[in-house]
Design a protein around this nucleic acid. Structure first.
Lengths: 400, 400
DNA sequence: TTGAAAGCGCTAACAC
DNA sequence: GTGTTAGCGCTTTCAA
């Protein structure tokens, strides 16, 4: 009996030694994917063992080229497609990496609409594919305990069944983890490589992180506004505890202390678009109204412009404006608004590279960190004199 | 010996009946994921069998609530996370759906930059998650034969290793399949549910498809331009054979025939941004220069505007302009440009719903089709008289 | 109501 | 150089 015949026979209950009792040996359970050929079918058709098939197709083992090409031919003829699930189970590698934003917890899944996230995710997807991985965007996992213990059948949150327990991830990218993010802790503890976009809190043992130097960026913007003649600079900031918000706000307060200005700021839940407009209004309605404002979030430029209009303030004559945004449309508002770009594309690329390095290599004991530059696009809204409109001129960071 | 003891013992080779020969029964191969608890560990700790654990966690079987909650408690205490890979292998469902654009074949993976695709993918991702699926964006599979036969080790194309063979998909969304797309055929033949964005060619046996009524949209735009005083309307179109390009171009030619105008159009490879600018230039350089142009692709508005400027043509006085775009920035160009929105968000949502229906239900014999409305945003560039700037007024389709 | 065991399709260790 | 076999972790069938 040749190997081929053996494998052929393996499909035929009658020709095989019976199991201990009179159990029925025909396929049950998950039930074979009816039409498709499996590795055994290929082996049988090619007259070799399944090992040889596996080796031939994966370029492993020490097979003569004749065998290899023969097997490949047969596989192709049968339309054989290896089962990714089986390979994943066997090797422990799925080739899938997750991307998630935990900051807003149970909030509905709207963050993909933010230009920053959209661009970051786009770059991350491309980079992952270029390295042979696919990227999966996932909502923040369910809050309590072992997320989605109940698997697909269960439902665990406003956004439907918990997907986390249904996808095998080789690693995860977490965007803007909060200070001591329980989700990140849980992920890391379960042995998953995690890389964060946004410097994580001290206690978060991520494998690596990427971030902008938000401190320097804020300093630079405030200096820029001061140079343009601002006497009292206000800040529109958020209530959440992610790095970006924390560091930027701290940098603002620090700058104020240094130059001897009283801080003038309003905080609002950044994920709520309406709250932004209200906060912008509040800021300009204050008795100690600032004559320049930096808004930490993308829509702040529009909101502040609208609020300024309501209060009869001209931009930039009465109010200087800068906001952090990835939207090109601020180049064409009236007046065009100066923005700080965090370069999310680069961040997405870098964060994926680091994650895959962590997955494939042995990760170093100390987390790898990488600081990415920002870009200040100076436009009309932040220049009182009709000065230059240069893009990110090389400039030393403000002296400390 | 209790069940718990048995399972405990199961980890101990000495206490278990030896296999036929003196084979070593200790775990080898894939090697257990060291730290993490498996279903057997939970069973042992809870003093039940793995069946009971499975049932308890999945809400199946007829277990008393006491058992169920006890098992859940133990599972949580051990930090048990079910293995998605194992579940997928067993059940045949991965909870993953693919999203791909085959049109441009081997082209580098830049299409995510198109606003249409970005918005469509965003909506698709959200919808998938809401229904308990995760969405994976994949590049067009390798051209020849059984895509990525060689799995992860192999490399098969300019964009790195072929990811297709490494992810288990329950179904796939194909954007803009070409007329008789071999990739779609291959996917469908392998038993994968496929839903297309863009009406597929007759011979493509997709489970469902979604599309705009491009014919009506083109007719409406041409009518609109004619009403604005256009005498000769040109078209900027593509060279690829996807539905959108084919149908739109055909509708244009048909309209020309009906009103007795000689067609004036230029074609270019739509994925090449430079080619667009050149084609726009060509169109306006023709001896039979049109006095109105409709551009089928997003960047055409900018390109045509630039070309018009080069030729000293004023918009809309000398040249009326409309393009198909999802970019809000056309609202603020000088002059603002009239655009047709295909509402990619709705399409993405719908296409996912249909795909999941196909995956979960028994798909009907005939493909489900769904036609989605478009939206014409009339702006300055297409109005010669200073008329209304209404958004998509209710309007009967042009009489045939 | 609970448990034993088969086996999803593949890879890797080892025997020949 | 090629084949046999265990087993990845789970779900499911069937027996008790």
């Amino acid at each position: 009996m040749t190997a081929a015949e053996k494998h052929q026979a393996g499909r035929n209950p009658a020709a095989v030694p019976q199991p201990p009792a009179g159990r029925c040996p025909q396929p049950r359970g998950g039930g074979r994917l009816s039409g498709r050929a499996g590795i055994r079918d290929v082996a049988a058709a090619a007259g070799v063992s399944i090992t040889t098939v596996s080796d031939a197709l994966n370029g492993k083992g020490r097979l003569p080229d004749t065998t290899r090409s023969h097997v490949r031919e047969v596989a192709e003829r049968l339309g054989y497609r290896p089962s990714a699930a089986a390979r994943t189970l066997r090797t422990g590698k799925s080739g899938l990496i997750g991307l998630t934003v935990t900051t807003y917890g149970e909030e509905p899944f709207t963050f993909t609409e933010f230009p920053y996230f959209a661009e970051m995710a786009r770059a991350a997807t491309s980079t992952a594919l270029a390295r042979g991985y696919a990227l999966v965007i996932l909502p923040a996992p369910a809050r309590r305990g072992v997320a989605g213990l109940s698997g697909r059948p269960g439902h665990s949150g406003p956004s439907g069944p918990d997907v986390w327990s249904n996808v095998a991830l080789d690693g995860t990218i977490v965007v803007d983890p909060s200070e001591k993010d329980p989700i990140v802790t849980e992920l890391v503890r379960s042995g998953m490589p995690v890389v964060s976009d946004g410097k994580p809190g001290e206690s978060l043992p991520v494998a690596a992180w990427v971030d902008n130097d938000h401190e320097a960026a804020v300093r630079r913007i405030l200096d820029h506004l001061a140079e343009s003649g601002a006497r009292r600079i206000g800040l529109l900031t958020g209530t959440s505890t992610d790095t970006y918000t924390r560091v930027s706000t701290a940098a603002y307060l620090d700058w104020c202390r240094r130059v001897g200005q009283d801080p003038v700021y309003e905080r609002y839940p950044a994920h709520d678009p309406c709250a932004g407009a209200v906060a912008a209004d509040r800021l300009l309605a204050r008795p100690d109204r600032p004559d320049a404002v930096y808004g930490l979030f993308d829509p702040n430029g529009t909101d502040l412009l609208a609020a300024a209009r309501r209060y009869g303030l001209r931009v930039p004559e009465d109010l200087l404006l800068v906001c952090c945004s990835e939207s090109a449309s601020y180049a064409t508002t009236a007046p065009p608004i100066t923005t700080l770009s965090l370069k999310p594309g680069r961040i997405g690329t870098t964060v994926v590279q680091l994650l895959i390095d962590a997955i494939e290599g042995s990760s170093p004991p100390r987390p790898v960190q990488q600081v990415m530059p920002t870009e200040l696009l100076v436009r009309t809204s932040s220049q009182r004199a009709g000065a230059r409109t240069t893009v990110s001129p090389p400039r030393a960071p403000a002296a400390e």
